[in-house]
Write a protein that binds this DNA or RNA. Structure first.
Lengths: 362, 362
DNA sequence: GGAACCATGGGATACGGTTTCCGCACCGGC
DNA sequence: GCCGGTGCGGAAACCGTATCCCATGGTTCC
């Protein structure tokens, strides 16, 4: 009777089981499997046979404890069902897999508490990097917390990557992958203005969110360029969902606001706006034009297909992963000086069928 | 000079660093942190102070090696950007978090090789369960491989959960969480038939996919019930994307096929079909009715809003997690006899605005 | 007042691998 | 025939934590 558990135990097979059954030492099995040490052909064959027979796989926890182990990226999303985020996640995941990295996905549900808990959990997991998706909030406290996250992760040999938001201020060890949000909004608004629209309902998104702020700034800048007054009452903030789009348009109509176009902060918001216009008996784009932002699949599934701003979400994900992978390879030696790398990707307007010159009133 | 690394090393702090700095034993620190052993208030305070100072978090790998550790579920998806799957993932993740479980997400991209690699990777991670999302393929080999997965995982103390596909045949240790796919299709088709439609273009999805097959069977059964002949040439298989929906309708129109309604296998396919009809100058639902399946957000964002079959995706995710959690609690003792549990959730038709009685021809 | 007990804290060990350090054979060369 | 080199395999030391077992000091009970 063995001191250890029986070979065909209920639990999973260990490297010792394999070694014993193959009549070799534990070290030899490890070497055959990792392949970083010369091993005789005979030994390899014997070991591999047992590995197959036992359907053995190494214990990832033990392996990473002992120093080896595959790097892991953690992706933190507000809401996994958001199409834009899903595309970033896809990009990260794809690039990670390509390098043999593992990826974890966690959702925060917009809850700062959960975000904190998740970052700590990832720290426990010893992830190579934490990728945080989505816009930032404008609270001072939130910013401080992010900086703390960045330093904590950095101290533990990990790294924080912010995707789709502006970089943190100060000398914070975090990488930022962003897109040219304001320019995209500028271009989109310009498109509307150059088509002749002068009265535009603007639905930028949540007031405190960096993404919404940048999009609003871009639109504002375009209005200035065209010398068109920017009416504060034609700007309606609210969450990035179709319900808000619907309500906002409904409300604007009820308020008697005059507008010939809707500049929506998001394709989803545009979808809601579209419905509200239709419900009010207005035709799109004949009576009112609409633009979106993000260029998620929905944009081209609507009728009319949405003119919108393309954001390279999936590529942002890939870039984010590449950034951490590169830094990790370079890392061993000295860390770079100004540690906060900042990458910015371009956006562009995708013209479809939701914009027309305004119809003459009167 | 200590033999060990310096306390303020570059790497993360260990429990030993904490113990040393607090002047207590390693065991005490562990006890304070896990809280499952009586500890004096004084000791707790001293330890916690150091923990905060050092920003210490326990190493999850070491913890799970030592027997503790939080259970982890792995979710394997074909494509993270699919809305239906994303909702299941959300359900699993939410329920997991509620119990303090961790969740991993991996995407297979419809590649059987990657699926194999991922399952093995999850086995290495020692996950409590692997949740596989989406329809199954009709290959014999594929089924065999699934059975092997199930047994491998089971042998390693893990468990396979199949979501959104029929259970495996034979005595395989896997749990299945499914929905009443065929009945949903039956109800949806009946809705169309009872509205008076007799010539229906059916777009069930990929020919080899279990989901598509079940939806087709349901439709067929409804036609039989109504005594309406089921025209094989009015059935067009293809992938679950909007492009297929578009092409299929375009092709049917070109072929001169007569139909007053489109029964799409998916909301996304319906979206494509809708576009094609519009492009051909047909109005929906006045000239042609359309139905979808899945009831993803898109369905209510389209104009007209889609009449579709609601599938409780998020709940399926929750149910899946609950099933593995329950079995894990009960598990310690004997395993149940017939191990393949099979849960089925209901579906129902959501009536919106995309169906009307057929216009009189001639 | 002594003994049994309770409440705490410390030391040692196990978890499942990887890796370093060694020793053993076997080989060829002189 | 002896010696050194080379190639391969084994023993053991870690990785960071949880937990079992034991020691200790103070308390309570007889």
């Amino acid at each position: 009777m063995s001191q250890r558990k029986a070979p065909a135990d209920a639990g999973r097979a260990t490297i010792r089981d394999v070694a014993e059954r193959a009549g070799v030492s534990v070290a030899s099995v490890s070497r055959v499997l990792s392949g970083n040490y010369p091993v005789s052909e005979d030994l390899r064959r014997r070991v591999m046979k047992v590995v197959r027979d036992l359907d053995y796989v190494t214990n990832a926890h033990a392996r990473s404890l002992a120093g080896g182990g595959t790097p892991t990226v953690a992706i933190l999303i507000n809401n996994i069902t958001g199409a834009a985020f899903a595309h970033v996640a896809k990009g990260v995941e794809g690039a990670a897999t390509l390098r043999g990295w593992l990826s974890l996905v966690g959702t925060t549900g917009d809850d700062p508490e959960r975000e904190l808990a998740l970052v700590n959990m990832m720290r426990q997991q010893g992830v190579a990097a934490v990728v945080l998706l989505g816009g930032a909030y404008d609270y001072e406290e939130y910013q401080l917390r992010m900086a703390r996250f960045a330093r904590s992760l950095d101290a533990a040999g990990s790294h924080l990557v912010l995707v789709g938001r502006p970089p943190l201020e100060g000398d914070v060890p975090a990488t930022t992958v962003d897109y040219d949000n304001e320019s995209g909004a500028y271009a989109m608004a310009s498109h509307l203005l150059s088509a002749g629209h002068r009265e535009v309902l603007v639905l930028p998104g949540p007031a405190g969110l960096s993404t919404a702020q940048a999009r609003l700034r871009g639109a504002q800048r375009a209005f200035e360029t065209y010398g068109v007054p920017f009416e504060p009452e034609a700007v309606r903030h609210g969450p990035y969902d179709d319900e808000h789009g619907y309500r906002a348009v409904e409300g604007a109509l009820r308020d008697g606001l005059r507008f010939t176009a809707v500049l929506a902060g998001t394709d989803v918001v545009a979808a809601g706006a579209l419905q509200a216009l239709r419900a009010a008996g207005l035709r799109v784009p004949e009576d009112v034009s609409i633009t979106g932002y993000d260029d998620i699949p929905l944009a081209s599934q609507l009728t009319p297909q949405l003119t919108t701003v393309h954001v390279p979400y999936e590529e942002m994900g890939r870039v984010a992963l590449r950034a951490v992978a590169d830094r990790r390879e370079a890392g061993a030696g000295r860390r770079k000086g100004g540690d906060g790398e900042h990458l910015v990707l371009g956006t562009h307007v995708v013209v479809r069928n939701s914009v027309r010159p305004p119809a003459r009133r009167d």
